[in-house]
């Protein structure tokens, strides 16, 4: 499974990273050498093995349904949430106009 320029361009588009044609071309052999190398995993016999789900045996903790119980995980912080925004107006984040 090796990638060509079209595939790299497609992945880059999927990952929303703009690459010039030159960058795509340069990336092809780099990705292929990494992919060739990771493909040795295919030779491992994994019969009957479940993919790892939790690295340390542990299950998911559930929290109580309380609003703003912890200021670090609650709401009501509009100014803080917007403080770093490249564009914000009237309490909203601004993005280039989207046509649906």
């Amino acid at each position: 499974m090796s990638v060509d320029t079209a595939t790299v361009a497609k992945i880059a588009a999927l990952a929303r990273i703009k690459l010039s044609e030159g960058e795509v071309a340069a990336m092809v052999p780099e990705l292929n050498s990494i992919l060739d190398w990771v493909e040795q995993l295919a030779e491992v016999d994994v019969t009957g093995i479940e993919p790892m789900t939790a690295v340390i045996p542990n299950t998911l903790r559930l929290r109580d349904d309380k609003v703003n119980a912890d200021p670090l995980t609650g709401g009501n912080l509009r100014d803080k949430v917007l403080a770093n925004a490249p564009a914000n107006e009237h309490g909203f984040f601004g993005v280039p106009k989207v046509i649906e």
């Binding site: 499974m1 990638v3 595939t7 790299v8 992945i11 880059a12 999927l14 990952a15 990273i17 990336m27 990705l31 990494i34 992919l35 990771v38 995993l41 295919a42 491992v44 994994v46 093995i49 479940e50 993919p51 790892m52 789900t53």
Partner: peptide, 24 residues
């Protein structure tokens, strides 16, 4: 890009699932 590729349609099991089995 590598991460996007190995998760993309058609490759997920061959790469990601296999890697998580090897990890196990």
């Amino acid at each position: 890009l590598i991460g996007t590729y190995v998760l993309s349609a058609g490759f997920y099991d061959a790469y990601y699932t296999q890697a998580q089995k090897v990890r196990a």
